[in-house]
Design a protein around this nucleic acid. Structure first.
Lengths: 378, 378
DNA sequence: TTGTAGGCGTTATCAG
DNA sequence: CTGATAACGCCTACAA
């Protein structure tokens, strides 16, 4: 009795059978009101809380949806997401109260738009909202061990959305055989599942056209890694677009090796030798913001000396100086769509790729700063 | 065989017993390497994914931590969190590709700093980070039915953090008897659990002192509801502070009834009859930003005609015009602390209340706009 | 190191 | 509407 109470305990106390107890929780309408009241009272009295694991086991499904990311450290080299510790746990005083103050700057560091919200956070939010709508619980997971962790979370949910990251195709294939999967911004071929991704080529075309038409740009540099699939697509669109427009192929400033300290060394080289192109098209907002910092330190004026554009549309781009011209991905919509595909999943529906349209947001870093009141409407 | 494979299937195929299969996953070191390889190969072949519900049931715990919120609609009346639908699911074409474009303004609405990230989001982020650190999965849940939903999620996790909202004390008490609970910004008395909250009084004292000393304010209005515990604490601190300072008691502009359409009718009244106090101290950033909007529409200049302050420190306060003077809660730290208390929980440790120190951030809405470059450093 | 068998707490089935 | 009982899939002594 002093152990965790079960349906049996409740049933005995309420003078009913376990089935009645079960129904009381899962199908209230199928049990007489006063019986129900008795059961609830009994449950209350002995502190009964139904165990989901038992229910899920019996039912054969969990009712939860999952969103799996991989170690953030891998995703944002040098980024601010490293899970650093807060202050040590203070011992409460006699009255059970602990006051915690912070060393100067702690909460500033902890509330940095450059670290949050990022792309994944906005997608995640969309996923959350759609889960609430569907009345589904949401299991968030993240892992460094690509094998174990993915399988782990897969075993807990009825459907799983997966962010880009270092996971073995084999593991994904395995999981995809048991539950529906949605790939977010991943281009892995041959997996039996739905995909939600953004039309990178369209986004880049919008950037290029804007630069060519509005700013008469004739020379372009691309800043960013080429290793990630999304980035590679973006660069390729830029390259082929430049070719089509008859301007020089974009110089590539790859920063993928610069994970810490002073990144963007190639940018520094070009800037200090006066060989900067007229515009720097960056593979992501994060890189673009770094570039803005670097250029500012070098005394290069943006957009006066060089135009800069990003990709993603994170909030930090509205707080930089100058504000960042960028391509906004419909991040929340991507998350919503992913969740919806999982919720509505039917075994026989064919898999599809959903390619969402991004949109150019001209702002200060290309000299198209919006008027003042646009602060609120963007 | 066409059904979901289980340990038995794997065991049979690998020519071992189910115990060996189990060990292969949970205690790899206790099984001979080649046996292990065989088991994994067999699992791979038939697409075996261990079911967490069965494991959790057998083990008696889930390994996951939970964060429970209540219906957002209740929390942010008239706010932008209403889970509205995205566009309808487009049918993919023959090649399995669906292109989705958006009506104008859709993604603007969907990416509004006034709706995200809010207080809860930043706390949640801290909680997430700490979960990753501890290698725990995180179950996010939200519910309208305060009774069922809370119990539901409680049944799935080893520990639960609870946001403020409409939940019956009885339900919380029930759950607290089975698993450790941490209350976030909740002041419910008498529950056997830890609490993490912010020192509202300290925050308000900082605001008041700033207004009195730096701006020589002599008359103050309080804007916001008094129904929520946090808000009530803030108002009380303001009231008693004003009394101590020998200035008039703050006028209360309660907006709790104005859930839609034109809120802040009292503010409009005062403004249009020229009876505005010198400073409007708001109970939250959200209310403060609404006040800023309303005042702008009325042609009242901030901070010229009236000073405005908020409370929370959400990102939107840096994007408003003028930027919002506010008190920042260490939101991420609160989330981290909550998770940590759950992870480190030991049955015999006494419960405590952790009261974190917030900090004043003087900005434009009280005429203390930071210098330009502070955009990045705040 | 590996196999056997009982138990974890609920749900579902099928009578009554 | 309620009661008995067999799954559900895995873990873990205990034995071999």
């Amino acid at each position: 009795m002093s152990k965790r109470p079960t349906v049996y305990d409740v049933a005995r106390l309420a003078g009913v059978s376990t089935a009645t107890v079960s129904f009381t929780y899962s199908k209230p309408e199928r049990v007489r009101p006063d019986t129900r009241a008795q059961v609830l009272a009994a449950a209350d009295q002995i502190g009964y809380v139904p165990r989901a694991s038992a229910r899920d086991l019996a039912r054969g499904r969990t009712g939860a949806l999952g969103l799996h990311a991989f170690d953030f450290l891998l995703e944002t080299p040098g980024g601010g997401r490293t899970p650093s510790l807060g202050p040590d746990l203070v011992t409460p005083d006699a009255s059970g109260v602990a006051r915690i103050a912070w060393e100067d700057g702690y909460d500033d560091r902890m509330s940095d738009p450059r670290a949050f919200p990022l792309y994944v956070d906005e997608v995640q939010r969309g996923f959350e909202l759609e889960c609430w709508r569907a009345g589904r619980a949401l299991l968030l997971s993240s892992g460094t061990d690509p094998r174990i962790d993915l399988t782990e979370s897969a075993g807990r949910v009825d459907g799983l959305a997966v962010f880009p990251g270092d996971v073995s195709l084999a593991a994904l294939e395995q999981v995809a055989r048991r539950i529906p999967i949605v790939l977010l911004s991943r281009h892995d071929e041959g997996l039996p599942c739905n995909r939600v991704l953004v039309d990178n080529a369209s986004g880049m075309r919008q950037v290029l056209e804007h630069l060519l038409v509005e700013h008469r740009t004739r020379s372009i540099g691309y800043v960013g890694s080429l290793a990630v699939a999304d980035f590679a697509e973006r660069f390729e669109a830029l390259r082929s677009g430049a070719e089509r427009a008859g301007i020089a192929a974009p110089v590539v400033l790859d920063d993928s090796d610069a994970s810490d300290g002073r990144p963007l060394s190639m940018l520094i080289d070009l800037a200090s030798t006066g060989r900067l192109p007229e515009a720097l098209v960056c593979g992501s907002d994060q890189v673009a913001l770094q570039a803005l910092d670097t250029l500012a330190e070098l005394g290069v004026d943006v957009p006066g000396d060089v135009l800069v554009t990003g990709f993603d549309g994170v909030l930090a781009g509205r707080l930089s100086n100058p504000t960042l011209t960028t391509v906004r991905q419909p991040m929340e919509a991507m998350g919503r769509l992913a969740a919806r595909l999982l919720v509505d999943h039917s075994a026989d529906a064919p898999f599809a790729t959903y390619r969402l349209e991004p949109r150019l947001l001209p702002r200060g870093s290309c000299g198209c700063g919006a008027p003042a009141r646009a602060l609120r409407r963007d």
